[in-house]
Design a protein around this nucleic acid. Structure first.
Length: 563
DNA sequence: GGCGGAGGCGCC
DNA sequence: AGGGCGCCTCCGCC
C-alpha cells in the first residue's frame, strides 16, 4: 500500500491511499497539527509513504516522536530515473526538464545563464512543495518508468535504498552524534594551548610561527598567507613551487619541521577548533545536515560542519552516553570487493575470501607485499597511470583480468563521452557542452597540436571519472542497502513504538563506515547485526556470486578507540 | 564591504 | 599528473 502525502495549502495536508496499480482508493484531509497522529496510526499497516522530499516532512514527524518505516522520496527517485540507462526510453526520462529536476542539473551549462531565465518559472523551485495532482502524476510516471524498465528489480532496489537513506539521514540528524565539548576543549588545549581570545592565535601556533620566521629570517612573515610564505621560502634559497605539505616534506631545512607542524595545527584550529565546536554542538550532540544523493555517484554530502571530514584528532570527543556503547563498523576493502562482484571475477573473490583482500592478492602471487596490492588496486579504480601504481597495474591485470577489464572499459566509455551505469542503475551524467566542444574542435581540419593534446587530456580526465564512477556509485548502493537492512534490524530489537533515541540507533555514516549508539546490554548483538546486514547487502547486489563483505565492528566508548 | 577563485587539506 | 567531496583562509575584484 502506498499513501501519498501532499500539501493542499500551508496548514492543510491530504493523504491519498493508492492500490498496487497506483489507483486512488481513498483520500483523507488532515487537519492542522494532526499529521503526526495520523502517520503514527497508519504505520501499523506498514504503508510506503510517498512524498516529494523527505527533508520537508520527516523532521517534524520525528519531533513528534513518530517514526516512518519506509517511503518513496520522489525528488531523489526522479533524479535517478532521469539519468538511468535502465529506463532511458520511459516518458519520465524523455520529458523536458521540469521542477522535479534539481537546480544542479539545470544549470550545468556555465556561461549560458540566459537559458536559465528562459525556462519555465516552475524551475525556480528545485524541489516542489507539490500539490496533490502533481504528486500523483509524478508518482505514476515513476511507476511507469519502473514497469517498462528491462531491469525493474535493480531500479526498484535502488530507489528503495535511496529513500531509506533519506529516512536514515533525517533520523541521524535528529538523534545527533554524542559529542562532549569539555573533552573537545581538552583535546584542543593539549594540542594548541589554552583557548585564545577571538581572533588571536593559540599559543602553540604563535610559537611555531615564531620558529618559522626566525628559521627563514623573515620577521614579518604571516604563515597563513601562501604567497607570503612562498616568497620567504624562495628567499631562503629553497626550491619549491608551492607550499603544499607533501612538497615541503621532501626538503631538509630547519624551517620545514615547525612549518609542517604549524600547518597541521592551524588546520585543526580553523576547521574543528573552538569556533566549530560552539557553532555545531548543541546539547551534547553534533547534528550534521546530511544530503543524501548529494554527490553524482550517489554518495552523501553534508552541508555545514564538515561532518564527513571529522579529523582523527577530535574523535576522542565522541563519547557514548553512560550505560551506552558505540558500535563502530567499517566495511573492509569495500570498493575492490564491489568491483569483484560487478565483474564476477572469481579469482579476486577467492583472494578476498575469509581474509584481508590485499593479503589475498599477495597470496595469489600477483604482487609481493600488501602495500603494493593496495596501491595497485586503488590505482586501478582511480586511474593512476604513472608511478608505482602504474607499474604494478599490468601484473594485476594478468592475475585478475575480469576485474581490471571492467574498470578499463568504463574508462574507455568515458573517453568517448559515453555514459556508464552502476550495479543498481545509477548512470553517470553526460559530459557538458564545453567538453564536447573541445573534443569537436580537436577533430576539425584546422585543429592544432595543442587542440589535440588538450582534447586527449580532457578525454582521459572524463575517463578517470567514469572509471571511478562505476565502483564508487555501486559501493554507495551497497552502503545504502547495508544501512537500510541494519536500520530495519535495529528497529526490530526493541518493542514497537520505541522512540528512536531510546533504542539502538544509527548516529553516523561515512561512506563505508557506520556508528550505532546502543544500550550496553545490546552492543554485542548490534555488532553481530551489523555484520549480518553487510552479508545481506552483498546478497541484494550480487545474489549468489561468492564475494564476501566482511566488516570490522568494534564495541567502544569513544570513536577514537576504533581503528 | 561582499563575492568567488585559488590554494590547501581534512575525510572516504 | 588519482576518483569523489566540504570548508577554511587569503586575496583580487567589483
Amino acid at each position: 500500500m502506498h499513501i501519498v502525502l501532499a500539501r493542499l495549502a500551508a496548514e492543510r495536508t491530504v493523504a491519498v491511499e493508492l492500490d498496487d496499480d497506483a489507483n486512488e482508493v481513498g483520500a483523507r484531509e488532515i487537519e492542522a497539527g494532526g499529521l503526526g497522529r495520523f502517520v503514527a496510526e497508519a504505520e501499523a499497516q506498514r504503508p510506503r509513504w510517498v512524498w516529494n522530499d523527505t527533508r520537508a516532512w520527516y523532521p517534524a514527524l520525528l519531533g513528534e516522536g513518530v517514526r516512518v518505516d519506509r517511503c518513496v522520496d520522489l525528488a531523489l527517485s526522479h533524479r535517478i530515473l532521469r539519468l538511468s540507462t535502465l529506463c532511458a526510453r520511459s516518458a519520465l526520462a524523455l520529458a523536458p526538464p521540469n521542477r522535479w529536476d534539481a537546480a544542479a542539473e539545470i544549470d550545468e551549462t556555465p556561461g549560458d545563464t540566459a537559458a536559465l531565465f528562459d525556462l519555465d518559472a516552475d524551475l525556480a523551485e528545485p524541489v516542489p512543495d507539490a500539490d496533490r495532482d502533481a504528486m500523483l502524476a509524478e508518482f505514476r510516471l515513476q511507476q511507469d518508468a519502473l514497469t517498462t524498465s528491462p531491469e525493474p528489480g535493480r531500479l526498484r532496489l535502488l530507489l528503495a535504498a535511496e529513500s531509506a537513506g533519506a529516512l536514515i539521514a533525517a533520523e541521524m540528524q535528529f538523534a545527533g552524534l554524542p559529542w562532549r565539548t569539555e573533552l573537545h576543549d581538552i583535546l584542543l588545549s593539549d594540542l594548541l594551548g589554552p583557548r585564545p581570545m577571538p581572533g588571536a592565535r593559540p599559543a602553540k601556533l604563535e610559537a611555531l610561527a615564531g620558529a618559522v620566521r626566525s628559521a627563514l629570517d623573515a620577521p614579518s612573515l604571516n604563515p597563513d598567507s601562501q604567497a607570503d610564505l612562498l616568497r620567504a621560502l624562495k628567499r631562503a634559497g629553497l626550491v619549491v613551487t608551492s607550499t603544499r605539505s607533501w612538497e615541503l616534506k621532501k626538503i631538509d631545512h630547519p624551517a620545514i619541521g615547525p612549518l609542517l607542524e604549524y600547518k597541521k595545527l592551524s588546520r585543526l584550529a580553523s576547521a574543528n577548533g573552538w569556533t566549530w565546536m560552539e557553532s555545531w554542538i548543541r546539547d551534547g550532540r553534533f547534528h550534521p545536515d546530511y544530503i543524501p544523493g548529494g554527490v553524482v555517484t550517489g554518495r552523501w554530502a553534508t552541508r555545514g560542519g564538515g561532518a564527513l571530514q571529522l579529523p582523527r584528532q577530535v574523535r576522542g570527543a565522541v563519547v557514548a552516553d553512560p550505560g551506552w556503547k558505540f558500535v563502530v563498523a567499517d566495511a573492509a576493502q569495500l570498493e575492490p570487493r564491489i568491483l569483484t562482484g560487478m565483474s564476477a571475477d572469481t579469482a579476486m573473490a577467492a583472494a578476498g575470501r575469509g581474509k584481508d583482500l590485499y593479503e589475498g592478492i599477495v597470496a595469489s602471487g600477483a604482487v609481493d607485499e600488501r602495500a603494493h596490492a593496495k596501491v595497485a588496486m586503488l590505482g586501478a579504480m582511480y586511474g593512476a597511470t604513472t608511478g608505482e601504481s602504474g607499474r604494478l597495474m599490468p601484473r594485476l591485470a594478468r592475475a585478475f583480468p575480469r576485474a581490471i577489464r571492467l574498470v578499463e572499459e568504463a574508462a574507455r566509455a568515458g573517453e568517448r563521452g559515453d555514459v556508464v551505469t552502476s550495479r543498481l542503475g545509477r548512470s553517470s551524467p553526460r559530459p557538458g557542452a564545453a567538453w564536447l566542444q573541445t573534443q569537436g574542435s580537436a577533430s576539425a581540419p584546422e585543429s592544432t597540436e595543442a587542440d589535440e593534446r588538450r582534447a586527449r587530456s580532457q578525454a582521459r580526465d572524463w575517463g578517470r571519472f567514469t572509471r571511478n564512477f562505476v565502483v564508487q556509485a555501486s559501493a554507495a548502493e551497497w552502503a545504502l542497502c547495508w544501512m537500510a537492512e541494519l536500520r530495519k534490524r535495529l528497529t526490530a530489537m526493541t518493542p514497537p513504538g520505541t522512540r528512536l533515541e531510546r533504542g539502538p540507533h544509527l548516529v553516523y555514516f561515512l561512506h563505508d563506515e557506520v556508528i550505532v549508539h546502543a544500550p550496553e546490554s545490546l552492543a554485542d548483538e548490534v555488532a553481530a547485526t551489523v555484520a549480518a546486514s553487510a552479508r545481506e547487502a552483498g546478497r541484494l547486489l550480487f545474489a549468489t556470486f561468492p564475494v564476501e563483505f566482511p566488516v570490522t565492528a568494534a564495541v567502544v566508548d569513544t570513536y577514537a578507540e576504533a581503528k
